[in-house]
Design a protein around this nucleic acid. Sequence first.
DNA 1: ATACGACGGTTTTTT
DNA 2: ACCGTCGTAT
Length: 678
Amino acid sequence: MVESGERPWLEQLNPEQREAATHAGGPLLILAGAGTGKTTTLCARVAHLVSEGVPSERILLVTFTRRAAREMLQRSRAHVPASARVLGGTFHSVAHRLVRRHAAALGLPGGFGVLDAGDAADVLDLLREEAGHAKSRTRFPKKGTLLDIYSRTVNAQQPLSGVIAEHFPWCEDHRDPISALFKAYTARKRELGVLDLDDLLLFWRALARDDVIGPRMASAFDHVLVDEYQDVNGLQVDLVRGLAAYGPEITAVGDDFQAIYGFRSASATHILDFPEHFPGTRVVTLERNYRSTQPVLDAANVLAAQAVRAFPKRLAAQREGGARPGVVFVRDEGAQAEEVCNRVLEAREQGMDLRAQAVLMRTSHDSDLLELELTRRRVPFVKYGGLRYLEAAHVKDFIALLRLADNGADAIAWFRVLQLVEGVGPVSARRAIAAMTGDVDAEAAAPDRLAAWPVARESLPANAREAADALINALIAARAERRPGPRAEGLRDALAPLVKLRYPDGAIRLMDLDQLVAAAHQARDARHFVAELVLDPPSSSADLAQPPHLDEDYLTLSTIHSAKGLEWDSVHVLAVYDGNFPACMAAGTSESIEEERRLLYVGMTRARRALTLYVPVRYFHRPRGNDDAHGYGKPSRFLTDEVLATCAVTRMPDDPLSPYGGPISGRKIDVSPDSLFD
DNA sequence: ATACGACGGTTTTTT
DNA sequence: ACCGTCGTAT
């Protein structure tokens, strides 16, 4: 036991936080508003538990991202070095660890692969084509939609018909074929020896339900702490309850007003139901905000008050002073880019590092023009969210090769890799794969598909065979090499000429591969390297780049989803117009509108001192098109008069509406050509 | 028969 | 960046 005087991590806490950190006996729910020291409290709780004698390896900390896990474990360790062995990660990474350990019981090969969303969609696409849906005249849902439907069904644990009726009504006609397709999908993954991200959770739950493995798995822990509980889905709740059934005490932390992952089947109802699911729950509410100044919170509180249903909560600032948030009307997205740039640079002149500033947006392409402008003015920036590394074609090519080195049965990877060779398209690739997987008779006994290559290569056009052989030889060499670094290096070298040939900017793309090779050198186990990459994807190009970047000053650009849990001195939110906030895609149900409001709230509450919202008045219908089709947008419906009253509103001189002296209230003018249409 | 480049229309958010 | 389609080259 440590004397209280030696526990600075507890003394920094306010009474509510301390109560949460030191709570003992029974489930605990911490309702923590934005900026109320949620992470501090959770880290203090971990430190407290360890200092009370709980062995650190018997504590499981489930977070929303791996980055959050790393950060928290680091902080806990700084308080109490004995926290070093706390097990931390996302639901998916914990699942991967558990499923790996019990792979045999689950009937999985030891080196089972993990499909990322792109790979999973490719498998579905293949089945879609095999079933003849690609050629049929009625439009069948595309792979991305299929994956969305599938994922929602699994994660919400809701029957397919209900999911389609509720969220994908336009697919109603195809319900039965979709159902058949999903069954084929399950079977195909088995054949390929792979799991998708949803499977990881399903397999974890299957383990939890086993009479022998379930209790043993749960009893490995004394405490399970779950962060961001407002964003868990039904399946994840099952997992937590499955653990709780056999002993560990559960702590959940979250804020129902920051629930922004409904599209992933998360629902804030779970955090509200927590006391029911875990009888005897102690609820602690944190409302003292240490992040933002009061004017920022005033605007956020007024926005939050619009919510139809929410836990009443009012954040109170502990910081002094501060300026009202700005709402800036600009002409269009071009003017917005210029204005943001100006303001960011001006702030830097005043002594605010770029690193203390961030630009946040609804969708990742909202920053397209800004990125051009920043590049033009040589302002360094790093972007989070949106298109990620693993989604770039050449990176996928490389990953497919790495997968094949682990698992020759992965036909999806074969399909991709073979088509890299010039002269090989979908048809001959498929033929070669069929030859390798052998129609049960010839090659069924051969566990290594590479053995069938001499036959398979005959299915390729003669002039492509030599280049394909080179790839195969690289794969054979890679298999003999167990160290992940050299293995990746060999495959990179084999891929390099093909990448250079295929992409005009091949040289740049090769640098991306070099970063992956560097990451592979750090990896412990070649077989898990790809799976871990999928579970902890580098979220920006900077993530893989090595330290030199860290010394530099750079601006952060991020989707609001990716900015969750983070904070900056100054925050700019782009494109706060109706159609974007809320997104027009979300206009369907009132709950999705509510979620959009919460999204704006999350964006606004990232700001410590300065917050600026931008409303482009004119926007282009086709941002990528070169025509000039545009419309005049309305400001976001969330920017009500009440919200605007808490802000300082600016109209830029070139705002087309401003020469008329700004809006005049009290007038109602109808403009309608409708009589022409009678 | 197959591969591949060109073109026009679309693209939310992510473990 | 992706998808589907179409025309041309092998």
